[in-house]
Design a protein around this nucleic acid. Structure first.
Ligand code: MN
Ligand code: MN
Ligand code: ZN
Ligand code: ZN
Lengths: 160, 160
DNA sequence: ATATCACATTAGATTTAGTCTAGCCTGCTC
DNA sequence: GAGCAGGCTAGACTAAATCTAATGTGATAT
């Protein structure tokens, strides 16, 4: 990824291009696998120890606020981060918690009236299930299959 | 809510109906506002100090695994819990982080082929924006409006 | 050139949210 | 009533993230 591009995207969002902020952004761009804050800190700090933990977290916060980076919360696991390139949805694995990109498509807005006084900014879809790796290996362990076997036994329809 | 109903739903999911487990479930049913684990612990423990923190968390884990309760992760905040009654989606407030129920509707499945070897269990929609309270009070502060003003200034289209 | 100011960064302490441990209790079966 | 499994407890522990108080950096003003 061209350094000039990162520089420009930072500055056009009103953020100064400091070495630390640049490094966080560059790492996110060259590693599109939704790393956690801890992973980002470790990698950036190893490459250049001039970026402390507090700075990594501060910069992630700033990048999210500026709309350049997305934070993805995952149940029971550390948050993951994602440079906002092309629009996309997310698939989250029930077993390993990994986050994967899914092709984007338009989501129908909520039915008229159900919104009340709320202000809608975004509709996103989250797909859940087993990632390719988890679906293949030992397809019969983990949360997902525990659930399945309970339901199978009870002939119950799960409601989400 | 009828105690018998709770009892039955626990047992038909293969969970024993202990006083502590019942209390957690009962609290979730009579307080449909997506409380955090800490709130649940505090309330249940106050009503009956025989339910410790570990037990509250263990029971929440068991209830989620059994499919009776849903856990909702929220960026930068504690997870929230939700009894699975009628199907519904969620609205999460950008500013205060509250989680609100939204009328359910069918979500189009991901386009054929984009799923690969993954196993799909669920598609859920998450709406984001400002809740009624936050939309009304001081509609011009907070993350949302910082973003908006940056974009307005730059004439930039946000991509999610 | 020097002062000033806002913003950025730092190491490490602190808080928050949740998990783990080791032992005890309770109800069921033999 | 011994044995056993599941459940419960207090409190220690851990992971993730935030806060604090001090320092650094670079732009502008004098
Ligand atoms: Mn992504
Ligand atoms: Mn809900
Ligand atoms: Zn997986
Ligand atoms: Zn709100």
């Amino acid at each position: 990824m061209n350094p000039g591009t990162i520089r420009k995207s930072l500055e056009s969002s009103g953020l100064r291009c400091t070495p630390q902020r640049f490094a966080v952004m560059a790492f996110l761009m060259e590693r599109p696998g939704h790393p956690t804050a801890a992973e980002i800190f470790e990698a950036v700090n190893r490459a250049d120890p001039r970026c402390s933990r507090a700075t990594t977290y501060n910069n992630l916060r700033d990048l999210v606020q500026a709309g350049l980076v997305r934070e993805v919360a995952v149940e029971g696991r550390a948050a993951r981060f994602d440079v906002k390139g092309l629009r996309h949805h997310h698939f989250i694995c029930d077993r390993c918690g990994c986050v994967e990109d899914m092709e984007w498509y338009d989501v129908p807005r909520p039915p008229r009236g159900s919104l009340g006084k709320r202000t809608l900014r975004q509709c996103e879809v989250i797909f859940r299930g087993l990632c390719a790796k988890c679906a293949v290996s030992g397809a019969d362990s983990g949360v997902r299959s525990l659930r399945s076997s309970v339901e199978e036994h009870l002939h119950v329809q799960r409601r989400d």
